[in-house]
Amino acid sequence: MTDLPQSPDTPIAVKKPSRLQEIWASDFLWQFRRSPVAMVSFAVVMLLVLSAVFAPLIAPHDPFNPATLNLMNGFTPPGEANMFTQDTFFLGTDDQGRDVFSTILYGMRISLFVGFAAVLLAMVIGITLGLIAGYVGGWTETIIMRVADVQLTFPAILVAMLIFGIAKGFTPPEYRDQMAIWVLILAIGLSDWVQFARVVRGATLVEKSKEYVQAAKLIGRTPFAIMLRHILPNVLSPVLVIATISLALAIIAEATLSFLGVGAPPTQPSLGTLIRIGQGFLFSGEWWILLFPSITLLALALSVNLLGDWLRDALNPKLR
């Protein structure tokens, strides 16, 4: 072994860039910096998420504290002084004198929480079932994928309403309002796992046939270890894309359910609940109670969705 060649590396010594420089220069960020749509939607999402997270610090009023509410402030138009109290509200107030800007911030918290939690639930269920279906195959696969197909033939919102109804039936009436949010998460999460399962199964079938999986089998690794340590990390990038787009859909699903009155209760209003409340005042001239929550919902869902679209292109090597 005397004349083994030296490591056939490039002959020119390159200075190793720092970790941070490496990330900054990575293909992914490079593409990000070249896409104005991605940058704008990312900025909008960050702005909305951060203001929801820090709502207690940002909101000028606490809409859920009856002590700070003044019924006299009801129906104040945006930016104008109230007739009786001379208070002004940036985005106006609703019928009970709650500051619309503050209710939107708090409503967004609920919407985002439900959205994230539901997607997380759908992801866990979908990835698990997809991995098992793809790797194990046979009857297990047939059963999982047929269930998925059947569920796919129903509109997701219908499935969510069904699950919501059933789950509500099981909760004792005194806990209903308290549990509503969790039931909502369960309903949306269960209605959305199919996409994850399908994509993960497809990707698993591809990875399973690759030789590195054979090599792992060869040394006696268990199917569980192979699925978890080898296949899972390799099927995550499509999952990330779907998760982002699902988040937009989950937020809209939550709003739809709440709008229909089967979602978040008025004591914990989400954006959907706010829109439902505001819709009652549209024709009496108090347009701002409906308009501002709707714009927020639109901005949130749209920017998350655009981000997801961009992510799909960015992670797809074929489109580069």
Binding site: K210, E211, Y212, Q214, A215, A216, L218, I219, G220, H230, P233, N234
Partner: peptide
């Protein structure tokens, strides 16, 4: 176990036989 650790395999496709995430 003892036989298993006595056998190894090298595959054809050097791109597919190494886990890209490891």
């Amino acid at each position: 176990e003892s036989v298993r650790s006595d056998i190894q395999m090298i595959f054809q496709d050097p791109y597919a036989s190494l886990n890209p995430r490891w």
